[in-house]
């Protein structure tokens, strides 16, 4: 029993990373008064470019950098279409998601699935920290993870610091709260929003790269709408960094339950386990919406 629980929490920390990175980037986007629906496409393209870069160089770090750059470029393109060509945000996001799915499918069929042997790149490996990794329960749960887990979780306090204590954070929250007031104060609304959107895109790309680099291979459609779950996470935690962390851990727990129980022959069909994170998203959104309405009533 304790082994199962250790396993659940151990994989929880590994699985929360893509959601966490994507959602923390989305915190900036949301707090500056925007909404990045295209995050799914950024994750898909980040996954394939991270895979390609790691395959070419052998370094996972370069894979993450490539994923981040891809996500960032996509974010800038989207941002310019929305603000310069005045296209509808939602429409641009849908088109980019479809385009990303098409492009990755095209490249995957041409280069990755062309032979029957799956193409594999270097995987992210779990670190072994002397002494700490050998601790009985905390060891496997906390201290033998790949480096991105620590980067993602330790970045949360940094993000909170930037958001609440730094000039940039103050400015972007001002833009999100009241853009015209912020403009009057001399804040460049366009630039601030662009920076935030860029952060969202880069983190979306890194989150996608994490998906392919933990597997060591690229599978078409591997993000499985995780980008939208990250969006929902950010929505119900109201753009608060620590709330987003808690949400990401909750969803990762649901995910690890799903993965752990799938191979075991229990009475629940595996499709229902696969549904779990998605149903949970709808439920959590509903509950948090209700709460926010009550908060408004007493405000």
């Amino acid at each position: 029993m304790s082994e199962i629980i250790t396993g659940l929490f151990s994989s929880m920390f590994a699985l929360c990373v893509p959601l966490l990175i994507a959602a923390e980037g989305e915190v900036f986007v949301e707090r500056s008064g925007q909404f990045n629906m295209g995050i799914e496409g950024m994750m898909v393209l980040g996954a394939i470019s991270g895979f390609a870069a790691t395959l070419a160089t052998g370094s996972t770090l370069l894979g993450f950098i490539a994923g981040g750059i891809t996500g960032g470029l996509l974010a800038i393109a989207m941002f310019l279409l929305i603000y310069k060509l005045k296209l509808d945000l939602l429409v641009v996001a849908i088109v980019f998601n479809l385009l990303a799915a098409g492009v990755t499918g095209f490249l995957a069929t041409l280069f990755i699935n062309s032979s029957s042997i799956p193409v594999k790149c270097n995987k992210l490996t779990d670190l072994h920290i002397p002494f700490l990794s050998d601790l009985p329960i905390a060891g496997p749960i906390l201290f033998s993870k790949n480096y991105m887990v620590y980067v993602a979780i330790l970045s949360v306090p940094i993000i909170a610091h930037v958001l609440y204590k730094r000039k940039f954070g103050l400015e972007l929250r001002a833009v999100g709260g009241n853009a015209s007031a912020a403009q009057t104060m001399g804040i460049d609304v366009f630039k601030t929003r662009m920076k935030c959107f860029l952060i969202g895109g880069v983190s979306g790309g890194i989150a996608g790269a994490y998906l392919s680099l933990t597997l060591g291979m690229f599978v078409e459609n591997m993000t499985m709408n995780k980008g939208f779950i990250a969006l929902a996470l950010c929505t119900f935690s109201k753009g608060k960094p620590y709330g987003t962390l808690a949400g990401a851990l909750l969803f990762a727990l649901a995910d690890s339950i799903q993965i752990r129980f799938q191979p075991i022959d229990i009475d629940i069909p595996y499709e229902f386990l696969l549904m779990l994170p998605y149903v949970l998203t709808v439920v959590v959104l509903t509950i948090s919406a209700k709460r926010s309405r009550e908060e408004r009533k007493y405000a």
Partner: peptide
Amino acid sequence: LRVTLKVNEIVVCIMLNQVAIYAIGFLVR
């Protein structure tokens, strides 16, 4: 959910798409 609680219908719709894929997959299996 949208008209009573103002839940973002876009995210809910996308989630339900994924749920539908698994539901139909189970039913035909």
